[in-house]
Design a protein around this nucleic acid. Structure first.
Lengths: 165, 165
DNA sequence: CCGTTGTTTTGATGTAATCAAAACAATTGG
DNA sequence: CCAATTGTTTTGATTACATCAAAACAACGG
């Protein structure tokens, strides 16, 4: 009789032991060399998705001092072309990065505090939203950004209105 | 018996005589002072929608030499807050401007030649695409950019493939 | 463990846009 | 029609974000 407790199965064991190895594997299997700055950026991105290069630089530098901002840009560029991260460029914001790739999900951004949340694709298929041929264009992707007030800012807006009647 | 020929009705006559006055009126009725740089920017924008500040600067300078680039930025900013123009900021591009405002239409951009076309709203209502409350957000607008190959670039891509078989 | 190849550092450069102060021009009210 | 007010434009500096290039360096395949 073999145990089926998920904590002790093969995948679980590897996962527990690997620890940082998981990140290394994903980098290597994307065809890239595994380096300390790359691990650090990927780790930072896991903790704080929708971060910009500068915020990632801050996080990376704190556990790998001596890393340059340009290295972070370089890492993000290589991750981007390798398909490891996705770059989003909302109006009025520096570029943001996230590890969730492959599905084409969208984003909702608070106009007041700029917090970003993922939103599943409106339709569910790759170039979500129907038009696959519009005005003679061969449409490959649909990028959607919703703008609005997040829950916290809705409350703040209400209490502010009370302060200034 | 009064004529009802639209060419001679009051509005039509005013329109024909006004010529440039149409632009001036739209500026003034937006609560802004009418100035030569503003008229020139609005005129340029009528000719070339989806232009960036620099392209508009080029057009403006050619019929109103001495205008500064900063003036163009200033004009565009005031037009933006006055609701006279809309600013779009596609990923990887400087901001583009257009006079079509009020309806919330979207855009389709060629990934090869960067040409921009208007696309009517996917649903037809203001924050097009259903979600008016997502993840606790109060959604106010949905911004959609389609990316693909324009008709001309589709043809070019085909002939290039023939060149490099 | 060495060589190749790709990555990071260092430092310069570029683009798009914004800011601030002084000169100037459009409107409003007399 | 003129003067005062208010808003706009010019001029020049400055910022934010990002990219480029060369030399130093590190990963990985043999």
């Amino acid at each position: 009789m073999t145990t089926t407790d998920p904590r002790y199965d093969d995948a679980g064991l590897r996962l527990a032991v690997a620890d940082e190895g998981v990140l290394a594997v994903s980098i290597r299997s994307a065809g890239l060399k595994v380096t300390a700055p790359r691990l650090a950026v990927l780790r930072a991105l896991a903790d704080m998705p929708h971060s910009n290069a500068d915020a990632l630089f801050g996080a990376v530098r704190s556990d790998l001092p001596g890393t340059s901002l340009q290295a972070v840009y370089g890492v993000l560029a290589s991750f981007g072309t390798a398909g490891l991260v996705r770059k989003i460029e909302p109006a009025g914001s520096p570029a943001l990065f996230e590890r969730r790739v492959g599905d084409n999900h969208h984003h909702i951004i608070c106009t007041r505090c700029s917090v970003v949340n993922d939103v599943d694709c409106a339709v569910g298929h790759a170039p979500c939203l129907t038009p696959s041929e519009v005005l003679g264009f061969d449409v490959r992707a649909a990028e959607v950004i919703y703008w609005g007030l997040c829950a916290a800012c809705r409350l703040d807006a209400v209490s502010e209105a009370a302060d200034h009647p």
